[in-house]
Nucleic acid binder design. Structure first.
Lengths: 343, 343
DNA sequence: AGTCGCCATGGAACCGCTTCCACGGCGCAG
DNA sequence: CTGCGCCGTGGAAGCGGTTCCATGGCGACT
């Protein structure tokens, strides 16, 4: 019953012109006389014609679509970055296709599917080191790629200095007078090759070393990037002899787990344990968490802008590294250690 | 320099067969002999052939893409719903295209662009009453639509009983002994036609009426769905004579604004003012907010499932209304009013 | 007045895939 | 041995646009 879809041919026939002319009108070609243009526009209006994005994309070889690869859409930090992306793309003529990644298989599959330029004109990868091989296939296929919170030579990236971030957190604790400082982070050998946590740990270690503090047995614990896992790890960390008086968690999510564990153990924060996180996600403000703030929203926004500029410019994006600043946000989960803390 | 993209014709030539045969192999048609199939598969592998999604979509008339319209991607509740959508679609062969809506113009533009079936095979609309006219054009064009947190006759929807939700919140406060209960919600004449807040207000009013309580002048305030706006409104609400001893905010975001205002005014929560929100977003747990929980994640998930089933089934989805349950979550922002509360 | 050239336009080819149709070859029944 | 039917296959048409090329008409210049 439903009237079949109006095509460019229908419009052409209605206006008494050729399909080519209608196309020219649609694309604002100057090669059309005013009179004809008016007639075509009227036909378009009359028939309620909507050009097919698909046909146009196929014909032009560009789909006006950006792929955004997001690992763990469940994580607040990923969503915050995505918000920046969406904000920047608003008003541009690009649509966003979301690729959620929860496993390496997932990831590889998406990257493989994207190897053709026809799924997306460009690719924005959030917080995920892309598999080298797939990345090169993409670049060879002429698909511009921008990395946010990940890097790879030859590809533009938006990053922060995670090592320095680890230093900032550790330095804060050292300056408060803590000498027994634990660390909770992601497994360094995780399946995705995430390195942020390891780098933050590195920064933390360097500060302790410089301060002449040693990292004791069991002061460093790894687990997946998850609140309850972190809680469990922290419980063990805090139960040991000579327990740390401060903990640096490599993300706010994990820091919240640490706080939970401390409360479970009947300790007060920061009275008995100081806690520093990383990211500054929205909840952290509510939880009063002291943390190293990284500009999540801005990173997404900037990544999108770089990608857009590359697309507008036509060429591949300049492989520039943009490094965004980190900032210590002191709230109420850190304080000097108790004088009477057991040594 | 870059080797031009491999097409089906290349594969056909390499394997010494016709393009049609390659297509049949790609689509698992039984009409191909084992020998030929093997030869084609080898060619595909050899040439690293990736079929063009675009060409396939154009030719088949289906793009294997779902459009998701999300108003205010900035809102935590919208993101939570989106999480459910993404989770459900994971593993299905559908991709998600995101349409962010920040203004009615935005909204209408997106809906207009989606009127052709070729942008998306189906449409999921979150928390947004679609403009009637555009909706019908969509349905006429055979694009299945599912509404989440919105309704419209003839279209399947996932909703909650907002009136009842308002009652639940108000009843809780009444049962605690409050008699002066304020309300802060969205502007009933907002530009998008959101009705949730108005319905919750309606439920709230009905409970107060049943309890024989009157809603005093200035006890009800409207503003945009925003924390700082709510904070300002609440400041006025709490500054008036005979100020309420409890406030029901039509969303958690607004409730958090109310709490902020109370603190600004030197009042304690729940000591001086009790606060109830609506949604139960993640932060609420941290803020200890008493709220009416609605299953945000589940709503997105169910919406996606309904849409998928409609698409698999081929036809239009049954215009079923799924109503998800609400639940009062009592935390620490509500308590009985002070005995000495000024009358 | 004739010729040249340019502008507006129609139409065909093409983007890369699916699908329909027609055809050749083979097996089987008459 | 001939004919019928079916299976596997090649090839063309079509999806709905864009773009290139050829053409016709007109104005301007000599």
């Amino acid at each position: 019953m439903q009237e079949s879809v109006v095509t460019i041919a229908d419009v052409a026939a209605y206006a008494g012109v050729g399909a080519g002319t209608v196309s020219r009108v649609l694309n604002d070609s100057p090669q059309v006389s005013e009179a004809t243009r008016a007639r075509v526009l009227e036909a378009i209006d009359e028939l309620q014609y909507q050009p097919s994005t698909l046909a146009r994309a196929l014909s032009r070889g560009r789909s006006h679509t950006l792929g955004v690869v997001v690992p763990f859409f469940t994580h607040a930090s990923a969503v915050e970055r995505l918000r920046g992306v969406v904000a920047e793309l608003d008003g541009s003529r690009y649509d966003v296709v979301l690729f959620n990644v929860e496993s390496p298989v997932h990831r590889d599959e998406h990257f493989r599917n994207l190897t053709r330029r026809d799924r997306a004109d460009g690719l924005l990868v959030l917080s995920l080191p892309p598999p080298e091989r797939e990345l090169h296939r993409l670049l060879d296929a002429g698909v511009p790629v921008v990395l946010v919170d990940a890097e790879c030579k030859g590809v533009p990236s938006i990053t922060t200095d995670d090592v320095e971030g680890g230093r900032i957190a550790a330095r804060h604790l050292v300056e408060l007078g803590h000498t027994r400082i634990g660390f909770i982070g992601d497994d360094p050998n995780n399946r995705f090759g995430f390195t942020a946590s390891a780098k933050r740990e590195h920064g933390y270690r360097s500060v302790l070393a410089d301060a002449g503090l040693r990292v004791r047995r069991g002061y460093i614990r790894y687990g997946s990037h998850d609140r309850t896992v972190a809680r469990r790890l922290a419980a063990k960390l805090l139960a040991q002899r000579d327990r740390p008086t401060a903990v640096f968690a490599s993300s706010d999510v994990q820091a919240l787990g640490v706080i939970g564990a401390a409360r479970d153990a009947g300790m007060t924060v920061p009275g008995d344990v100081s806690v520093v996180g990383f990211d500054d996600i929205e909840i952290s403000g509510y939880a009063g968490l002291t943390t190293v703030r990284q500009p999540l929203y801005e990173s997404g926004r900037l990544g999108a802008r770089v990608l857009l500029e590359a697309l507008e410019g036509g060429g591949s994006p300049m492989p520039v590294r943009h490094e965004l600043p980190l900032e210590l946000i002191v709230r109420s989960t850190t304080s000097p250690p108790r004088k009477d803390a057991n040594g």
